[in-house]
Amino acid sequence: MKKKTQIGLLVLVTALFAAVPLILDSEKSYYVYFLFMAFTFIALSQSWNLVAGYTGQISLGLHAFFGLGAYVIAIGWGQEIIGFFDPLGMILSGLIPAILAVVVGIPLLSKLRGDYFALGTLGLGEILRLVFIQGGALTGGSAGLMLPSSSYTSMLPYYFIALFLAVFATVVTYLMVQSSLGWALKAVRDDETAAAANGINILKYKVLAFAVGAFMAGLCGSLQAYYLFHIHPQNFFGLNWTLYPILMCVLGGVGSITGPVIGAIFLTAIFELSKILLPEIHPIFSGLLIVLTVIFLPDGIVRLGWFEKFFKGRKTESPINLKLFTGKEK
């Protein structure tokens, strides 16, 4: 696709989604809630896509930044520093995880590679979850914090902010990977030694991608905090906030811009449907889907023959090695 077509497609899809509340009653329609969740997952998937799909650093710490972003809002609101839908508060809920990503990312990314880095980030989420459980009155312990839910008036702002986050994450990822910075990220992904030998400061670019990804995840956390009004460690530091976006990326197509979007919408639909139709076995169903995806579709929907023929005209493969999940070399 040409650049103009890509931008046109983005504007068209965004406009279509923006028009949905005109047709459906946002307060009653289940579809508005569904799209709200799908948009959040698009943003989270793009965050993982940037770090893993384009930079090759498989992170299992998305939920750490997501939860931290949520707690920034919860604590800030409780201390009356941040208000309801406070733009500054939301930016702060992105910035603090980004700063954490830099502080943690420098030692993690310089010392750990591949699966070891993944395990390191997994540890980060666990540490944060325990820290917030032990946080006393400030974090509300394992019961978490309750926010004034009477502030809720309408679903519309949630819908549009989620749509904005999805578009924001997609556009930021797109702009980053299209620039010379994106070349550096892809070079680090394909061969770290060669990237360094070509004069790319690999640590700098890895940390940068990690921090931008954390910023996006933190923003998603803050919106989810405003929506649920009850922030507790088991939910917000739950591993699902990492595993679902990974699955969405892989199913849609890692290392592509459209892949995470398609994967997030498709899988949110599947998960919501299975919640309604198979309420008891929903987690089993999600797990099964993960297994099936990595076995049969590791390159993603966007790399299916007919899809590529239609949009790109050439065959590509998933650029990252999913050995961690599949157990086999690419």
Binding site: W183, K186, A187, D191, T193, N198, G199
Partner: peptide
């Protein structure tokens, strides 16, 4: 650091070539 060395004019063709395999030749 490696980035400084390249800028100074020392360039390495790594063992096993180390191409960026998912990118095109031109890239």
């Amino acid at each position: 650091g490696a980035d400084v060395m390249v800028d100074l004019g020392i360039s390495l063709v790594p063992e096993g070539r180390g191409l960026f395999t998912s990118l095109t030749v031109l890239e």
